[in-house]
Design a protein around this nucleic acid. Sequence first.
DNA 1: CGCATGCTTGAATTTAATCAACCCTAGTGG
DNA 2: CCACTAGGGTTGATTAAATTCAAGCATGCG
Lengths: 250, 250
Amino acid sequence: MLQAENVYYPKELTNGGLLGSEPHCLQGLFRKQPVEHLAAGQSLFFEGDAAKHVFEVVEGDLRIFKIISDGRRVITGFLHTGDIVGVSLKNHYLYSAEAITETKVRRFSRKAFEAEISNSPELRPEVFAHLCDEMAAAQDQMVLLSRKNAEERVCSFLLKQLRRHSGCRQSNAIVELPMTRLDMADYLGLTIETVSRTMTKLTNKGIVASVGRHCVRIVRYATIVQLSGNDDEYDGDERAVIAYAGGKRH
Amino acid sequence: MLQAENVYYPKELTNGGLLGSEPHCLQGLFRKQPVEHLAAGQSLFFEGDAAKHVFEVVEGDLRIFKIISDGRRVITGFLHTGDIVGVSLKNHYLYSAEAITETKVRRFSRKAFEAEISNSPELRPEVFAHLCDEMAAAQDQMVLLSRKNAEERVCSFLLKQLRRHSGCRQSNAIVELPMTRLDMADYLGLTIETVSRTMTKLTNKGIVASVGRHCVRIVRYATIVQLSGNDDEYDGDERAVIAYAGGKRH
DNA sequence: CGCATGCTTGAATTTAATCAACCCTAGTGG
DNA sequence: CCACTAGGGTTGATTAAATTCAAGCATGCG
């Protein structure tokens, strides 16, 4: 089921184990754990499995997904270097995780993880912030899936990828898309054909430029922001309140 | 902006204030707070506002929503008696909250709330569980919005409402729908017309029976479960693993 | 080279959205 | 008490967007 069954696990660190070197960030907890390798396509865990570990992505990309009754797949998120997965759940994983590219992860027992957290007033706010970010992302995704058309979805996605990797917001930035078109489709609630057509359209309009299959250059950043349907101009503290009246219906 | 500006707020309770009567559940924290009344349609807080309070719904129903650029509204959830709102965020509310029916709430300062939490090893797991539930609900909603058709959405919604109020899962149960059809539509990512048509269809097929505008009787529970597209038969610990192959495409 | 996989493109179909009309009910006021 | 009204809800006809079905293209790998 899980790979890496032959990896050696050192005795799990309890809070005692970190005396004198208390980590000040979540990633720090994983520092001493051995790195495990996942080949592209390999599963890290499955929806419904007992949630025994929390993971840090050391390098690579994964998809997080759920499968419903008749085989339809919904990707609820992608993970990248530095991300942590497995915090926001109780006893069982709510979703499956699978490597997209070759990937390196570190794991930490949830039990020990929770012990560390509850004993560290330093770390607790960080976990809380992590959960809030996850929640905010989920809400944005609900907005996207609920009310955005294909073009808006794809543009939102490109921006998200852009901001994740580089903090860079300029035109001419390069966005990596390690996942397949099917992954994108299952994340955006579209079909592979619609994603493809939309990408082509953006390319033809000169808004992005294709750089091979898994890479895109942002040509007109401002246009993408506009097409994404997020009022992203205002992402500071103050936010314009927009009345709910007479807008586009859907 | 907010109503109840003329309500008297007692000095906010810090952890000291609860000596000798430490609450063992989140709702307990609010016990001493005054009850505020909201008329139907009144706002509790707005997306983007500084998140100064956490709220407990004492009685009534609210909608939680976001508005995007051109006025499109997305309802990300409904709140009912006993629910707590405002936990999973950092400095600003991520959404607006509005009373659907006449509603009573209690508020608690976030600062004091967080102090209580971080000083109570009893309460912390409860907050954590709350966040996990919120997260799980968000994921289910993403699945619904991403891959379910109108009928599946409406059936999923009816089941959710049914389970929320009564734990009752039988046929012939009555489901209250205090919200309008527009609320349902904006929650389910549909239009009001599609919601209406779908409800009519379910009624004509004898699966539900209409009991006035805001009420429905579940006639064939099993059928609704089936139509909801959730593999809800298995909600114990073990879960069937379903291969991702050859299912309905969308 | 030849195959497989992933991606693109085109045409037909389907679902839900849109546009438009009408109905029902609760609440108001004469 | 009844008529009127406004808001919410339903229903029908038409349209639009995305899906589905189908074919072909590109890239990478044995």
